[in-house]
Design a protein around this nucleic acid. Structure first.
Lengths: 204, 204
DNA sequence: CCATAAAACAGACATTTGTCTGTTATGTCA
DNA sequence: TGACATAACAGACAAATGTCTGTTTTATGG
């Protein structure tokens, strides 16, 4: 490769490596060499090591394809979570599609058990949750007042605002057209599936 | 490793490989070997190749860390898009944080130019877009009536519903407390930044 | 018990890949 | 021009990794 002005090629190498890391696999030194037409492996290595030195890339020494994005892998680990659809026999089961649908999320704690649901109905309209919206839920057996939760009431999963009144649980819709649910009162089986931590809506 | 019932270990290996691929780097055969305490590389390889044969994993032959998730890379490419914050001198510029913040999205067309914005104000309340929500925008110079768009009016970026009336562009809020913006009329510089394709809201 | 299939093991070889030492070319600045 | 820094090149070695052939162990069904 012809001589290029200082830093010019390095920037392109950074972009290349970054793209490759995001698309699934970090490149090898020789991948970079070939991609840029270097006639020596060391040319690629020189740039890569410098990028690491500058802090633009991270690296695992000795291992193949050891280059990483420093902000990634630690700061915000990505996680693939299942898209649950149907409610069957009182329990949310993975909608066995082929292949199953998965959603990519960036989580703070990678040990959380997350899943996604599609919202039906307009009971949470005033909380900005519309029919068709996808809610991302962290599985947990309890909630704090004010949380938006997913609960199983009877055989149906519903999204509601969690409240407590006189020591009793209440599930409040955010729409005057709907009434609050006071689980224990009407004897309907009730269980808390988890807390909504994110709402997503695709337009078109 | 002790003998396990058919398919039992393989399932765990699949989970392991999957996790590793998502977390950034596919494992090597020996990574799998070590992780499961196999005393022979071939034990790991046998399982891996079978997973490929079953279609649960994809693979690039000969290359190191060549295992992939089949549904990925083709069906729904992931893309990292920049989080734009400020509006400066009539143009949206990447909020030069250190490091810059990026959002992971799954796109249908990987050649789209996307960026993310944080919504300020309550003008789109009735469209289910609240202050603090993040909107993901596809850069495009035109829009169709009914689209939710991001436009630059003066020096400010606003999210509005795109309409046309008598051949003139109108930007409609979705909240009675706000008035529509008819760009050409008041002489304010106007430019369409793109169309909102997704809305995300983090709770807590 | 025997046949069969799958799981796990053993040991090796070839390729890929990371790393190293040293040299040559190109641009910048005094 | 000459010192200096960076880019690029050359060739090699060692470790990591993919791959192969064959054997042993374990469970299952007739």
């Amino acid at each position: 490769m012809a001589y290029t002005s200082p830093g010019k090629t390095r920037e392109k190498i950074y972009d290349f490596v970054r793209e490759r890391i995001l698309s699934g696999t970090p490149p090898t030194t020789r991948d970079v060499q070939r991609a840029f037409g270097f006639r020596a492996v060391q040319s690629a290595r020189q740039h890569l090591e410098k990028l690491v030195f500058e802090g633009k890339l991270a690296k695992v020494d000795g291992r193949s394809r050891g280059y990483r994005l420093p902000e990634f892998g630690k700061a915000s680990p990505t996680q693939l979570i299942p898209m649950l659809g149907r409610v069957q026999a009182g329990e949310l089961t993975e909608a066995m599609e082929d292949p199953p649908e998965y959603i990519m999320v960036q989580t703070r704690f990678d040990d959380d058990e997350l899943f996604a649901l599609t919202v039906e109905g307009e009971s949470m309209l005033h909380a900005g949750i519309l029919p068709g919206d996808m809610v991302i839920v962290r599985r947990q057996p309890t909630a704090s007042p004010g949380d938006i939760v997913v609960a199983l009431v009877g055989d149906e999963a519903t999204v509601k605002r969690y409240r407590e009144r006189d020591g009793r649980v209440e599930l409040h819709p955010e729409n005057e057209a709907f009434d609050p649910i006071i689980p224990r009162e009407d004897g309907a089986p009730f269980s808390l599936l988890g807390k909504v931590i994110e709402i997503r809506r695709s337009v078109e």
